[in-house]
Write a protein that binds this DNA or RNA. Structure first.
Length: 319
DNA sequence: AACGGTACCAACCGCGAATAC
DNA sequence: AGTATTCGCGGTTGGTACCGT
C-alpha cells in the first residue's frame, strides 16, 4: 500500500506533507537524530522535505526512539494505567513516566481502548441499548450539529417527538468516566443558559472536577466551558446553540463530536440507566447517519407533518 | 467475495511553557 | 524586560486492519 507505483499518487504525497511516514523518511530521520541528537527539530526538519520540526519530533518520540516498548499492554499494565488515571486524570505525559518505554500517546490511546472495551462489556452485561436504539435515531429526528469553522459554536436541532427527550439535556461525553455517579448533581432542567463541565483545557486537572475525597461527582459550576442557549423553540422542535463559555477561559471552539443528549423518564427524574455513555465516535456516527439537510435546507422538514421553525433564518445570520 | 461497520492507533493541531536572544 | 523560537502536552482526526454479515 505504501509502495505506490503511480507517480500521480507520489506527487500528491510529496506535495501534501500530512500523512503517514514512509520507511525512507524514517531511515532519514534516524540518521539525522544520530547526527544532531533528539533536539533542534527544526534543523532536522530542514533536511527532511515536507516534514515540520514538530512532526519529526513526534515521529521520533512516539515511534522511532529505540527505547519505546511496542509490546501490547499487559493486564497488569492496564490495571496500573487505570489506577494512575484515577490519580492523575488526563496527565498523560505524567502517567507515561510511570510506564518505562510507553509514550504519552500510547498510554492515552490505550486508556481509550480500555474504556471502549469496558463500555462494550458493560453494554452486553446489562443489556443496555445503544444510544441510537433508545432514541430511535433512524427516525431522523435529530440532525447533526452544523460545524461552521469561522463561528466556534455548534448548532443542534432536536425534535421533541423523540422518546424521552422533552427534558433533554446536552452532555459532553468526554466526561463520562465515572458512569455510576455522573448525574448525581444534575444541572437545571432548563436547557437555556445551562452550562456543563468538560475536561479542562486550561491547565487545571479535569479529574479534580470528578473525583474528590474518593468520591466521583459532577461539578457543573467550577469548570464550565460551554454554554447552551436556546435559539428557537417550536411545538416539536428545538434549536440550540453551544458556545464556548468565554468567562471560563475556554480557548477552543466547541468540539463537533463530543456532545450527546440525555433524557429523563416519565416522572421527570433523571434516567441514570440510560445509555448515556455513548462515546463521541458513536455519537458522531449517529449524527452522520441522520439527515444533515435539516439544518441547511428547511424544505424536507416542512414536508413532514409537524410545525416547522425556520432555524436557518434565526441562527447563522447573526455574525 | 464484497461490503459496511468497528476498533485501534499514528499523526496532526492548537496552545502554553520554557528557553534563547 | 520583551520578543521570538522551540519544545511539550492534551485533544482530536483520519487511515487502515479487522470482523461480521
Amino acid at each position: 500500500m505504501e509502495d505506490s507505483s503511480s507517480s500521480a499518487v507520489e506527487d500528491a504525497k510529496t506535495s501534501c506533507p500530512r500523512g503517514h511516514w514512509r520507511p525512507s523518511e524514517d531511515e532519514k530521520l534516524r540518521l539525522l537524530v544520530q547526527q544532531y541528537g533528539a533536539q533542534n527539530w527544526n534543523s532536522i526538519a530542514e533536511k527532511l522535505q515536507g516534514r515540520s520540526g514538530k512532526s519529526c519530533r513526534l515521529r521520533w518520540f512516539n515511534q522511532l526512539d529505540p527505547r519505546i516498548n511496542r509490546r501490547p499492554f499487559t493486564e497488569a499494565e492496564e490495571e496500573r494505567l487505570l489506577a494512575a488515571h484515577r490519580i492523575h486524570g488526563n496527565k498523560w505525559a505524567l502517567i507515561a513516566r510511570l510506564f518505562p518505554g510507553r509514550t504519552d500517546n500510547a498510554v492515552k490511546n490505550h486508556w481509550h481502548v480500555i474504556m471502549a472495551r469496558k463500555q462494550r462489556e458493560q453494554s452486553k452485561l446489562c443489556g443496555k441499548r445503544s444510544f441510537q436504539d433508545v432514541y430511535n435515531y433512524n427516525d431522523s429526528n435529530y440532525s447533526c450539529p452544523k460545524k461552521i469553522s469561522s463561528n466556534p459554536y455548534q448548532d443542534v436541532l432536536i425534535s421533541s417527538r423523540m422518546n424521552g427527550l422533552e427534558n433533554a439535556r446536552f452532555f459532553d461525553f468526554r466526561n463520562f468516566k465515572h458512569k455510576d455517579r455522573i448525574f448525581a448533581d444534575s444541572p437545571s432542567t432548563s436547557l437555556a443558559s445551562w452550562s456543563f463541565a468538560t475536561s479542562s483545557s486550561n491547565g487545571s486537572p479535569a479529574a479534580d472536577s470528578f473525583r474528590r475525597d474518593g468520591r466521583d461527582f459532577f461539578n457543573s459550576h467550577s469548570n464550565n466551558q460551554y454554554v447552551v442557549s436556546e435559539i428557537s423553540k417550536g411545538s416539536d422542535r428545538f434549536h440550540y446553540r453551544i458556545y464556548p463559555n468565554s468567562s471560563a477561559n475556554s480557548r477552543r471552539a466547541v468540539p463537533s463530536n463530543a456532545f450527546g443528549l440525555f433524557g429523563s423518564n416519565e416522572d421527570g427524574r433523571t434516567k441514570r440507566d440510560f445509555p448515556s455513555f455513548c462515546d463521541s465516535s458513536t455519537f458522531t456516527k449517529v449524527r452522520a447517519s441522520t439527515d444533515r439537510r435539516e439544518l441547511e435546507d428547511p424544505e424536507p422538514i416542512e414536508h413532514k407533518e409537524v410545525p416547522f421553525i425556520d432555524f436557518l433564518g434565526v441562527g447563522v445570520s447573526s455574525s
